[in-house]
Simulated scan of single mutants.
Amino acid sequence: MSSATAVLADSYGRVRESVLHVTRGLTADQLSYRVDGEANSIAWLIWHLTRVQDDHVADAMGAEQVWTARGFAQDFGLPFPPSATGYGQSADEVAAVQGVSVDQLVAYHEAVCARTLEFIAILSDDDLDRVIDTSWDPPVTLAVRLVSVIADDLQHVGQAAFIRGVTERL
């Protein structure tokens, strides 16, 4: 493993640790709590950050997403098409993420993290330089996409930690 892929693996491992920490012991009410009617819930944030990671890594691999391949889409029973990642969802759609347990969220995140780490382990520095999205200027390399997902994941897990703190003070 190169130093670049080692840093990526460490970063995704930190996201995983943060997801486990922020979800540990949460009640159903805490998972679905929203600061106001326009805000995200912890359940939605963890689902969304994992969906985006799954979507982007599967795309980079040219593989089916864990969400559908392993039956998580069916198990979660959310009222969205299997392709939904949460991007651009309305407040009503955020509110629809109900009845999802900590165990489900963690199992899905663990499966996506494991796949992400397996993928990163086989990458070379040349792989990281590969352009995977030409719709941006400059075009997006695999390295940039993987770092972008880490940044997004950490922002969302931080938001979930904030909401957890709010629920613990109610």
Rank of each mutant, 00 (worst) to 15 (best):
V131C: 09
S3P: 00
I163Q: 05
A58M: 04
I42V: 14
W136Q: 14
L154D: 05
S18T: 15
V66K: 03
D92N: 03
L78Y: 04
S148K: 09
V100P: 03
L142M: 15
A73R: 03
R70C: 01
G37P: 00
A114E: 15
D55F: 12
A58D: 02
R16T: 05
M61C: 04
A60W: 02
T27W: 08
A6C: 00
P81H: 08
V35R: 11
D129N: 14
R169F: 05
V66A: 05
T141L: 09
E110N: 14
E38W: 02
R164L: 07
A151Q: 13
S3Q: 09
D153C: 15
V22R: 04
A95Q: 07
V94S: 00
A111G: 11
L20G: 11
S3F: 00
V147T: 14
D153Y: 02
P81A: 14
Q155H: 08
S32D: 11
P82K: 08
S135C: 05
S41F: 01
D92A: 13
R51V: 06
R16G: 11
P82S: 08
R70A: 13
L45T: 00
D10M: 13
G25P: 07
G25V: 08
T50K: 05
S135F: 09
A6I: 04
L26E: 01
A58Y: 04
L146S: 05
L31G: 01
Y108C: 12
